[in-house]
């Protein structure tokens, strides 16, 4: 009889433990109650930030600089787009076929909490599964209502909030290519300001300053999204590939709004 009870208790605790680890009900419920608090916190933080940046720095120069930066990023994005189109059309001329362009619906979300620490770079946004957001969806930055570059990926969704890992988070990885040379490589976050670029072919003629875009080969991020600029290119210790660092195109630490591409994941996690 005692053995039966022990077995029953063991099964009950194992099932409860499995349920708690797998579904994690606390987070969803607790996050739901904390959302208004996070909203208030983000609004106040933004106001404080704007106050200090407006009055303690050179107001006009900063605004002009910001405008020029935005314009520059927009132009870079446009340039990236047109260079990519040019390369694509050159290929298509040879192949005599045209692929249809892709369009995904977008959801604009506000960052309500920044969960950053020395080991991870994550943000929490005010949109969740009820807005159609699913894990693995790509996240872009918004500048003057236009997506300019890749910011990260959705990793956790709840009813009215979601968690996003930034490019610099150690768990982030994407298949990318050098825009100029079209050589593919893997971009990985490492918990630092810049990302790591690995497995770039040894024969690649890439050089520092080259623009990095998504290749679309990982079936998660659409092709041609601006990622960043290549820095510190060198051979890896084994001498089989080249490695480097990538400076993200989007200023990840001054984000307030993001755009989520509602692209349904083609592969499961």
């Amino acid at each position: 009889m005692r053995k039966k009870w022990a077995l029953f208790i063991f099964i009950f605790f194992s099932a409860s433990l499995l349920f708690l680890v797998k579904s994690d009900p606390f987070k969803g419920v607790f996050g739901f109650f904390l959302k208004p608090f996070w909203n208030f916190e983000s609004i106040l933080s933004e106001k404080i930030k704007n106050f200090f940046s407006s009055y303690f720095f050179l107001v006009e120069i900063k605004r002009e600089n910001q405008k020029l930066k935005e314009e520059n990023l927009k132009l870079r994005q446009e340039l990236t787009y047109f260079v990519e189109r040019e390369i694509l059309y050159q290929k298509l001329e040879k192949l005599y076929k045209i692929e249809p362009p892709f369009q995904y619906p977008q959801v604009v979300a506000k960052i309500i909490y920044k969960a950053v620490d020395p080991f991870s770079d994550q943000i929490i946004i005010n949109k969740g599964s009820k807005d159609g957001i699913m894990p693995q969806m790509p996240v872009l930055a918004l500048i003057a209502n236009e997506g300019v570059g890749l910011v990260g990926q959705v990793v956790e969704t709840h009813k009215n909030w979601s968690r996003i890992i930034l490019l610099t988070d150690p768990s982030f990885a994407a298949d990318v290519k050098i825009l100029r040379t079209q050589d593919r490589a893997i971009l990985k976050g490492k918990g630092e300001k810049y990302c790591s670029l690995e497995f770039l072919p040894l024969y690649s003629e890439a050089k520092t300053g080259d623009t990095i875009i998504t290749s679309g080969q990982d079936l998660i991020y659409p092709e041609g999204l601006l990622v960043g600029t290549l820095t510190n290119l060198s051979k890896d210790p084994q001498g089989l590939f080249k490695k480097g660092e990538v400076k993200p195109a989007v200023d990840l630490y001054n984000l307030n709004w993001v755009v989520i591409l509602l692209k349904i994941p083609e592969i499961s996690m």
């Binding site: 608090f37 996070w38 916190e41 983000s42 106040l44 933080s45 933004e46 404080i48 930030k49 909490y113 920044k114 969960a115 950053v116 620490d117 020395p118 990840l252 630490y253 001054n254």
Partner: peptide, 21 residues
């Protein structure tokens, strides 16, 4: 707890940096 969480949240939101736990 509410005050400290709030101050922590505002600090991290503004600086985007949190070197401690």
């Amino acid at each position: 707890l509410i005050i400290i969480s709030f101050l922590k949240g505002v600090f991290v939101y503004i600086t985007s940096y949190s070197p401690l736990d």
